[in-house]
């Protein structure tokens, strides 16, 4: 029998700020070792408060946090040693040089320079910052600063990496390359917890997910089960020829976006065969088809709306 190791266990976690704001109302959360986990929620839902408590930046009101079965209250040093954090806001000393920032951070984790210097060099190369290693951090571009924060979080080889909206404000190309990088380090065994506003990002990267809203976990499941709950899907069909004027699709909810583009909405149990059969009968050929935008977004909105309705 194999025992699953929990990278993170949160029990009955509450946080009430001094202004009376109840940011967390007793959440429970668990993340298995090796997972790529998404923590989603609208602004002010409690995501950053949760991460702040895990990383000791925020003092909890009550509850229990364990990192790799190590109690954060009883053994803070051991528990913190597992963690790497990429925060939402840039929080390095802008006057320090890029490599210094990495070596200094490694030093705080007890890594001597003989180990941290080669490790910093390795990360700087991997993240495309090698040429900037002697540049003060404040002189970097926004994307480079973001990559510097990822390098800094990884310099001590953490077992649990927490990323709080790491791709906010990053261009698409860089975002994709960061996804590839994160997938690689997850494949190498690093457990990753990600909060993001880009739901597409969570859908693409993460295997498990929790949705938090108004200080409560409203969903905590695996991504596949969650997406399976969608009762309808929307597809965009790109047609080879313009649609005829008398075109119609019986029993299918559709919308003509332009002369040769159709948007169709299907119930989950309905197959696409009926649609293709009707199009074929009318002499219409489909050049390509894609799933519209983001399926997770629809679910997310549904869950959050449901959470609002129960208040």
């Amino acid at each position: 029998m194999t025992t699953t190791v929990q990278a993170l266990t949160i029990q009955h976690l509450t946080k009430t700020y001094s202004n009376g704001l109840e940011a967390l109302k007793g959440i429970d959360l668990h993340v298995e070792q090796g997972d790529f986990f998404a923590l989603l929620g609208p602004n002010g839902a409690g995501k950053s408060t949760t991460i702040g408590i895990i990383t000791s930046l925020i003092t909890k009101t009550s509850g229990h946090v364990e990192i790799f079965d190590t109690d954060l209250d009883k053994y803070p040093e051991q528990a913190k040693a597992y963690l790497g954090l990429v925060p939402q806001e840039f929080n390095f000393n802008g006057f320090e040089k890029v490599k210094h920032i990495l070596v200094t951070q490694a030093g705080y984790y007890g890594m001597p320079a003989s180990k941290s210097e080669p490790r910093a060099d390795e990360l700087l190369r991997q993240l495309g910052l090698w040429d900037k290693r002697h540049t003060p951090a404040r002189a970097l571009s926004g994307g480079m600063k973001r990559r510097l924060m990822i390098a800094r979080a990884l310099v001590h080889k953490p077992q649990l990496l927490i990323l709080d909206e790491p791709t906010a404000g990053v261009d698409i190309e860089l975002r994709r390359s960061m996804w590839t990088f994160l997938r690689e380090i997850n494949a190498q065994g690093t457990t990753i917890i990600l909060t993001t506003h880009y739901l597409e990002e969570a859908e693409n990267l993460c295997r498990n997910i929790a949705i938090i809203d108004r200080g409560n976990i409203v969903e905590h499941t695996d991504m596949k089960s969650l997406l399976n709950r969608l009762d309808k899907e929307t597809f965009i069909l790109d047609l080879k020829t313009p649609l005829p004027t008398n075109f119609s699709l019986d029993g299918v909810h559709y919308q003509q976006l332009d002369d040769s583009t159709l948007e169709i909405e299907l119930k989950r149990d309905d197959g696409l065969n009926n649609v293709f059969a009707q199009l074929s009968q009318q002499g219409i050929e489909v050049r390509s088809m894609k799933n519209k935008a983001n399926r997770l977004e629809e679910l997310f909105l549904t869950l959050v709306e449901r959470s609002e309705a129960t208040l």
Partner: peptide
């Protein structure tokens, strides 16, 4: 105070430094 102001005090708080 600068470390607080620029938030890089967080580097130390997050790390296992007593």
């Amino acid at each position: 105070y600068s470390a607080k102001f620029q938030s890089h005090i967080e580097e130390l708080i997050v790390a296992p430094v007593p």
